[in-house]
Structure formats: C-alpha cells, structure tokens
Write a protein that binds this DNA or RNA. Structure first.
Lengths: 152, 152
DNA sequence: TATTTTTACCCACAATTACCCACAATTACC
DNA sequence: GGTAATTGTGGGTAATTGTGGGTAAAAATA
C-alpha cells in the first residue's frame, strides 16, 4: 500500500522523479511499468502499477454501457490511460494531455493512496487542503454519516 | 496504550527523540517503524506504531470515493501518512510538510493518546489548554450530551 | 527520403538524509 | 547526597536522492 506525500518538480522535458523509497517496490511489482490516467473525481492524475491497473480495468469493463455515468467513467479512465516506464534515473514522462487536465506545470504534490498515487498541481492541492480543513474545523458543517462513526 | 506527556525539542535537522520509556515497546511492536500523519481535527500530528496505523488504513479504505467528505479524509490522512524509522539514537525525522502543518519549529509537546501519540507545537498546545480550561470552567457553556453522562 | 520534434540514455551537481561519535543534563542507584 | 548510568541534544561526514541538461536514437511530419 502506498502512502505519504512528496513535493516534486517537473523538469522542462515533462519528467517527474518517482521518490526512491517507492522505486524498488514498483520495479518488483511490474518491472517499473506504470499506468497514468486522469482522476475523474478531481482535477488530478492517478498513477497505478500495472497489476493494480489491470484490476481497475476489469472493474471498468464490467460497468454497463447503458448507465451513462458508468460509460463516461469508462471512457475517461481507459481513454486517458497511458503506459509509463521508469527510466534509468527512476523518472517517468508525463504526457501533455494529462498535465493540462490537472493544470500541472512545474510543482507537483504526489500522494500515496493505497493501490495508487495521486498527482496534484501543488497550488491546486494546497487550496483544496485549506478548504477542507476550514470545513472540518467549522462547527456548522455536519460530518457525513460514514465519518461520524469513525474513530482514529 | 500510550499515555503521558513529554516536552521535547526538534533539532535543526528536523529530528525528534522519542522518549526512551516508549522505545522498547515501539521496537517490539513494529521494529521501530512508525507512521506520522496529520490530525485533521486539530493542527497537530498523529504518530502511530505501524500495526495500529494499518487498522486506521483499513477504516479509511472502506470510505466511499463518491462521498466527498470521505474522499477528502482519505486523501488527507493517507496522503500525509509518512513512514518514520527510529534511528540509532531513537529519533525520527519529522517531514517539513507536517511540521509546517502543525506550525512546529523547536519545542514540541508529545502526548500519549491510547493507540497513538499526538504531537503539538508547545506554544499552540499551551494556548489550547488554557482556552479549554476556561471554557469548561465557565458556567455559561453547556457540556455536550456525551460529556453530561460522564463520570471520571 | 529529408527534416523536425520527441523521447531515452548518460553524466553532473546540489541538497537532503542516514549514520556515527560526543557532550551535557537528567535520572536512578547505592 | 554523591556517583554512575541513562537519555536528550548537537553536529560532522559520507551516501543517497532529486534536478538539470547534453547528446544520440526514435518517431512524427512533411
């Protein structure tokens, strides 16, 4: 399971270094072969090791084409899924299309999210974080049911 | 179960010594592997022994991605969860990101909190404590229902 | 096929991190 | 209360890691 956050930068060739603490695991899992696609729920990107992506692909294939939301999710996630290979320095090349979607230009926040990583434009992420913290802190906002019963 | 509070300092490399009375237990539990993450409810940090964190991770994984609050909680807590390894002197390195979140610079208050520790900037903690004491002391503030029935 | 653009591989630098040793303050023990 | 062990703090050094860029191969375009 992946966790932890790292500030990273994208060089002017569009490459991003994968933090070294994850590299061995990624090479072990799939010889450094990764799948990058868009996150349909937020303006960010998802980065899967190949075997994990194949599980997701299976789930997507099972969605009915007659459910509009399912069809769209399928189209987006599969459509934008790009193969990325770790290079000799442990970097991957981020395709233009995807960088634009997440408005990533130079500074990235990479978040471990269980079976995958989430890639955010740093500014966008900071803003999101502050918004969320304000919301959690305010007494006026009711936590959702699933959160109410959560003990950490 | 962890309890008790300790004043500690962070050196200029960002390291914090874990009090020696906890070390044996932490090494026994998880070979000194700890997870540090943000406390989304206060501006402080949580430090879990790995096995305890894995329980939390399970609870988080169960939250739906389609509930926005659940998704955010997941992103924040997992995203900021950082692996920390006790070094030869029994210290851990506190990542910049997290120190900033809790506005920790030099003096820390470490509180045992059952399954985890809570790390506060000392000044912030002092202030909070005084505020809370004042609030509880004042007759005007109603205790919440769960507190009303509490005998200590 | 020729030209331009994109991608992969290599090397180099600077910043960060891990490991080691040392000191001073605190605590435990006799 | 004095002495010895433990513990928290500081810092030097070497290795690792993230970043940048030059150059050659590959792909795309004309």
């Amino acid at each position: 399971m992946f966790r932890g956050c790292t500030k990273l930068s994208v060089d002017n060739k569009g490459r991003m270094a994968v933090p070294s603490r994850y590299r061995d695991r990624l090479v072990g899992l799939s010889d450094g072969c990764l799948i990058l696609t868009l996150n349909p729920l937020d303006r960010s990107l998802w980065l899967y090791p190949l075997p994990e992506w194949e599980i997701i692909e299976g789930k997507l294939a099972a969605l009915s084409d007659f459910d509009k939301q399912g069809r769209r999710a399928k189209q987006m996630m599969r459509g934008y899924a790009t193969d990325c290979q770790l290079d000799g320095q442990g970097r991957i090349l981020l395709p233009n299309e995807l960088r634009e979607y997440a408005s990533i230009n130079k500074h990235i926040m990479l978040l471990g999210q269980g079976n995958k990583f989430e890639l955010w434009d740093e500014k966008t992420w900071q803003k999101l974080r502050e918004e969320w913290l304000a919301e959690v802190g305010s007494e006026s906002t009711e936590p959702s049911d699933s959160l109410k019963s959560l003990s950490l």
